[in-house]
Design a protein around this nucleic acid. Sequence first.
DNA 1: CCAAAAGTGTTGCGTATACACCCATGG
DNA 2: CCATGGGTGTATACGCAACACTTTTGG
Lengths: 202, 202
Amino acid sequence: MAGSVRVKVVIFSVINQQLHLYLPAGRLSQLPISSSSSLNSIAKKIVQEVTAEKIEEGYLEQLYTFSHPVEHDTRVDIIYFYLLPSDQIKESHKQSFISYEHLSKNTAEYSAIGYAVQRLRWKLEYTNVVYSLLPKEFTLSELQKIYEAILGKNLDKRNFRRKMLSLSLLRLSGKQKTGLKARPARMYSFRHRNPMMIKVFS
Amino acid sequence: MAGSVRVKVVIFSVINQQLHLYLPAGRLSQLPISSSSSLNSIAKKIVQEVTAEKIEEGYLEQLYTFSHPVEHDTRVDIIYFYLLPSDQIKESHKQSFISYEHLSKNTAEYSAIGYAVQRLRWKLEYTNVVYSLLPKEFTLSELQKIYEAILGKNLDKRNFRRKMLSLSLLRLSGKQKTGLKARPARMYSFRHRNPMMIKVFS
DNA sequence: CCAAAAGTGTTGCGTATACACCCATGG
DNA sequence: CCATGGGTGTATACGCAACACTTTTGG
């Protein structure tokens, strides 16, 4: 019989064109498993603490289950990750988001976080879940910067735009992004905001 | 606090050119989590029951963790899958391997098994773990039949061979497979028998 | 000599990549 | 008028898919 079983969630968001994750007081957000509730509902409860609105926009996925010995028993941690558009973060929690780039190698849970980032990159390449990191409307350059922040490399603008438009995941919203000291950008929205397998990049 | 936590393993093997899985008396092999032992070691203990030799040849991977309510508590099942060359199955357990094709839709755990097959297909396309389903030496046709059994479709012989050889995962063993009423086939072995990410098929 | 499986190349097509200039706006 | 970011097309290379015949052996 196992000792304690906990659910933890790595909450990702892209802020200022950099991949960030929620690390309140240096620890992953976590809750013990309570009686007769599903793992997913516990994970959602954890996320709800951090988000401004009811969670619908984000994307939740189970990552891995780790075990480690503790005293004369075994502790089991079930890890999830969650993708959150930065404009959905509660003001009071914003300062608890840490840039992944600047994360120290000896952060607690560093290996689990690294694995989560790997899985996140894969998800971006093979699904449409990037919608869960963006507001309803956005420009193609904003979308490209999200990909660049997460994949950790620059992409060619022309190839990126051609690829994205060819997948017909997007719809012109009609609006434009103005006010910046440059040519106004066309805004797009996602046709569907539910997870689908789609090969985006190789 | 969660009630019971168990580890289950879906054990796959390809027998007579068909994907099979171990279903003793209609149930997935399983064990309760015991105190102070890791999840992986429990999974290996389950597998060891079925294999002739010490498990080194096979491939073990964690699949998913499911929870379901039971009475006034929550049960947690951590599912693994394992790949076993058919010549490593203990004689006494051979008859407990069921063909996946002929599996009834209302087998207990049918959805978990279906998910395991999906993941298995993906693994074959993106890694070299197929080595864990084959004996040390084998012909290219035998290798192709493993892929066909798992992917559930036929492959072009010439394209398959060109692709496999171009990945330089294989080494000619020098031996030949004779005795069948046809031209003898060259035998190959894997250069490396540890998991690597390699794009095999699209 | 016949059945059975092994072995072997070429072509067309579509997708990915590399690359540079003009346009519209705000200040 | 200048700085900033938006927006656009082409040429090349590469990988994938389709396709049929000859070779070697056992019986």
